[in-house]
Amino acid sequence: MDKVRLLLSLITIAIFAIPILGMLLAYQDNLPGLVIPSEINEIADDLLGGDGANGSGLKPPTVVGQPQYDEASRTFSVTFQYENTFPIDITIKSLSGNIECVDHGFLLGNASLSDSVNIGAGETAIMTALGTWTEEAIDHFDTSHRGEDLVDVVLVDLALDFSGLQIQIDQRLMEESMQVPNPVS
């Protein structure tokens, strides 16, 4: 009976000791590798070491060309260019932002992406966002920008949703302003 008890105790010790000691011996020259596999370092380098804003792989979209305005429907369209600096294909499910008057900080309306866009790793895609000026925006154009053909505006509070990650750019990271046609000129 004592032999059975001893045998079972030895089995218990062996079950715990052999795999852990074996792994420690295998990684004796690289102990951090026991808890941080090389794949994690590669992924972190790819995500944080990219050439995006502030050294990270994130890169805000840039506006391409001038926004278009359709008087009949009071809608405007803004074209963006977005470079996927991640080492993976991404799907931009949604993109939206507010458009503000540069001179007065007045909220003129918002723009959002009409369809989702797939962008391959390292590729650049062109996206078009559509929006409508609010009633207050039309009044603002009329009262504060009467006589101006083009008005300086800036995109703020940009929100992106890609592959389930929701990125909210709170500050005016897209500092470059653009000019939109004055709808009441």
């Binding site: 990270s56 994130l58 990650l165 929701q166 990125i167 909210q168 709170d170 500050q171 990271l173």
Partner: peptide, 18 residues
């Protein structure tokens, strides 16, 4: 739940994920 991810070295940007 939707959680906010910390992004090192990037200010003014919030990353939320489900």
């Amino acid at each position: 739940t939707t959680s906010t991810l910390p992004i090192p070295f990037v200010s003014g940007t919030t990353l939320r994920v489900l």
